Simulated scan of single mutants.
Amino acid sequence: MAGHSQFKNIMHRKGAQDARRARQFARLIREITVAARHGLPDPASNPRLRAAVTAARQANMPKDTVDRAIKKATGAGAGDDYAEVRYEGYGPAGVAVIVEALTDNRNRTASDVRSAFSKHGGALGETNSVSFMFNRLGVIRYPAAVATADAMLEAAIEAGAENAESDDETHEVTCPIEDFFTVRDALEARFGAPESAKLEWRPTTLVTLDEDRAAGLLKLLDALDENDDVQNVYANFDIPEAVMQKLSA
């Protein structure tokens, strides 16, 4: 296992689920707000909003909460105006980190992100200082039960995807970002709404970490994850299974 999904698995085992759920809902509401404000308020006609609403449903967000977020975004005096910003830098052991945020105060968010990097052995860099080590891809995930691996791969390729990988729990389809909505809609027509569908940064190389360096990096990722403005964090690290077990014990 590698990358941010590994960090998420570790954090999930540590508890504090109520606080994490509240942060997750806050992030989803921000994404719904931005999507509704910059496009049509109807998910059927707004691909980004449809993806945000799907993510909210997967997180078991109440429907009335979703509806209120859309109405607030499109109503008179629509409230906070969030800007999309990306930060890039290096964590402990030279791990490349990309942080995506939605913020109503760029100065506050930049200061908080820079502080998190500094306190945990990293350094915030300039835009594009590490993104060249990642590919930007559309990623669509389905539960394994919706189709066989062969059927999902066939459907993905027909829809214009680059690849589909399957295991006992999940089908993961990847595609170029310019084909993301076309591929997602084709798969949704065939298999129903996906478990998740979004654009992600995927590292092209990984830094393997020992226990000490892994612990330091995870402290940085945890600090970023606790920031309400931060939507997503991506990093090019690999933690061996033996080290994972020690860290999550």
Rank of each mutant, 00 (worst) to 15 (best):
I70P: 15
G91H: 06
A144Q: 09
A235I: 08
A26N: 09
A215R: 10
L218W: 00
A235G: 06
W201P: 08
R213D: 07
G125K: 05
M11Q: 15
D112S: 11
A35Y: 03
Q17N: 12
T170D: 10
F180E: 15
G138M: 04
A156P: 09
Q58P: 00
A155H: 01
A197E: 10
G122C: 04
A242T: 07
L137S: 05
S118I: 02
N107I: 10
T127Q: 10
A93L: 01
N227A: 03
V53L: 09
V34H: 12
Q17A: 13
M1Y: 13
L124E: 09
Q24F: 02
F181A: 14
S131F: 06
P143H: 06
A56Y: 03
R13H: 12
W201S: 13
L153E: 12
L220E: 08
V85S: 12
I70V: 12
N232H: 14
R213M: 11
T127L: 15
F117K: 03
A78L: 04
D222G: 10
A223W: 00
N105M: 03
A116G: 06
S166G: 06
F117R: 04
T65V: 15
S129Q: 10
A214I: 06
E158S: 07
H120C: 05
N232G: 09
G125R: 05
A235L: 11
S196D: 12
Q6G: 11
P203N: 08
S118H: 06
A189F: 00
G216Q: 12
I10V: 07
R57S: 01
D112F: 00
S45H: 03
R48I: 00
P41W: 02
S118V: 03
D42G: 00
L209H: 12
M1H: 13
A55N: 02
A159C: 07
L218A: 06
S129D: 08
N107H: 12
K72H: 10
K14P: 01
A223L: 02
H171R: 01
S131N: 03
Y234M: 07
F134H: 00
R108A: 00
I239T: 05
R30I: 01
R13F: 01
G79I: 01
A145L: 11
D222H: 11
M1N: 15
A164H: 00
T148V: 05
A186R: 14
L153H: 10
N135H: 11
T109W: 07
A73P: 09
R21G: 04
G125S: 06
Q6H: 11
F117T: 03
V53N: 07
A55Q: 13
N9D: 09
V66T: 14
V97G: 11
D179G: 09
V97P: 04
A214F: 01
A144Y: 04
R202I: 14
A155T: 04
V233I: 15
A93C: 08
L221M: 14
Y87M: 13
A235E: 15
H12G: 13
A161W: 02
E154S: 13
T109V: 06
H171Q: 08
R23W: 05
E200K: 12
Q17P: 00
T182C: 03
E84P: 08
E31W: 02
G39T: 09
D81H: 07
A164L: 03
D67Q: 15
F25G: 09
D185L: 11
V139D: 08
D229N: 07
K8P: 05
A123I: 04
R202M: 10
A73F: 13
Y142A: 01
R141N: 03
